[in-house]
Design a protein around this nucleic acid. Structure first.
Lengths: 246, 246
DNA sequence: TTTAAATTGTGTAATAAATACACATTCTTT
DNA sequence: AAAGAATGTGTATTTATTACACAATTTAAA
């Protein structure tokens, strides 16, 4: 193995040059991916957590994560974890931040790359029978294992920001949704109340909603119309998302 | 060493459990930090690059990076690199993204965390005599070593976005600056032309600029007034940055 | 010393976007 | 048949964005 990686040689700083023994003994870390998987159900934003089986954090909730495999890209690892846990593969997924504090894992140094994912909770409802996995209300998440609360908070903040810039929210909804459901979703994500008329005006003026000429069923009040998001039109559109400034 | 990290046991997926031998042999990677250091000089946005001394990329330009030390947090590593190269320590620095494609480094798997930094180029002009280090015009950066072009592009995009949301730009300017310099900076970062009167109106209405009652010197035309950014007022302000939508 | 060149400093009118706000309608439940 | 609950709709006000022109100041050149 030739000169590789990085090392300081005397006073002169060289780029990416070191010797094999250093690499093996000191400069390598374990690398994991943790997924913050969001869902939306009963008008609440949810996050999918698993009970930790690590000694120090036994019984506490943690994010879904795993070590990155030797021949696996980071995004691939994130999709693998999601697939294993939910069975879903064609969903929104995005890298959020990397957490690498020296003592974040009790056993050894583990650097973790956090990913945020948005899924339609109905699509995989059946797989969460396992009592180690649970959908938690986002607003009632408090203590978590490791530094996962910090990772979760960071992801939620980023979601709140991103959802104003891009039409991400639809990934969390059923294919057919009412405007009330859409507004409830935005209110849940942004943790705020929105004016109903202005919300509707805004979404209709963007013109990416297709009226399905159907109405809700089984609601104890006047049913609303159902819509779907026009992904094809969105993809063609040059200006894309106008931005949502509530 | 107890059960640690992550492993699949049969069909059941466990969280963070594995055995020592796996950790050492397969699941560890080299971890580096790469800094995209931006500066502003002669009305152009610049990036600080170093000539690569790696065999495959010899002579090509690369970002300033180094392996993360065993007992070093990621942010610390980024600040260390910046300090070593520029002598500056109290500057804007922010994690951008992590790049971990399997073959991004020719020698072995090296996952790198990219950081973006904004510095006042005047403050360390003297240290860049070394001909391996060079300030490049951002718009003329083309080929780079490794996947550094991709890292650079990602960082520049993020900078363009962040500078509209937060008052970052001032880190790139001298303490005293004219409004023309400020506008030139924004035009350089955003790669666009802005209306001078609207730009001034916008910044004055934010009310974070302190009029220093001084004027520029040595300009071949009517000199402009000098200002500084009121960081104290900004920190106290509840609404912070109004957002710049050009 | 006069003139040309360059850039600063300033305000208003027009357009677009965000906000606040109320009532009739439709469907379900009792 | 009446009460409850949520849908569907429009306008007026305020705020932000954009487009745009001319006099004043300084330096450099004639």
């Amino acid at each position: 193995m030739e000169e590789l990686l990085a090392k300081k040689t005397g006073n002169k700083i060289k780029t990416f040059r070191t010797i094999q023994s250093e690499v093996e003994s000191n400069y390598h870390v374990a690398l994991s991916v943790d997924c913050v998987i969001f869902g939306f159900d009963e008008n609440k934003l949810k996050v999918l957590l698993i009970r930790s089986d690590i000694k120090n954090y036994e019984g506490q909730w943690s994010l879904l994560g795993d070590l990155v495999l030797p021949e696996e890209n980071l995004d691939k690892a994130a999709y693998r974890i999601l697939k294993e846990r939910t069975g879903l593969s064609d969903v929104f997924m995005e890298q959020v931040h990397t957490f690498g504090d020296v003592n974040r894992h009790p056993a050894s140094r583990v650097v973790t790359v956090a990913y945020c994912s948005l899924i339609n909770i109905q699509h995989h409802k059946l797989k969460i029978l396992d009592n180690e996995l649970h959908w938690h209300d986002v607003e009632s998440v408090t203590e978590m294992a490791f530094d996962h609360k910090k990772i979760f908070d960071t992801s939620l903040c980023q979601l709140q920001k991103r959802v104003k810039e891009h039409p991400l929210g639809f990934s969390l909804l059923p294919n057919k949704f009412s405007l009330r459901e859409l507004q409830n979703l935005y209110e849940a994500i942004l943790n705020t109340k929105l004016d109903r008329r202005n919300f509707r005006k805004k979404f209709f003026s963007m013109d990416f909603l297709i009226d399905l000429e159907e109405i809700e069923k089984d609601v104890p009040h006047r049913p609303g119309k159902l819509y779907k998001f026009d992904y094809a039109k969105f993809d063609r559109s040059p200006k894309k998302w106008a931005g949502i400034a509530f």
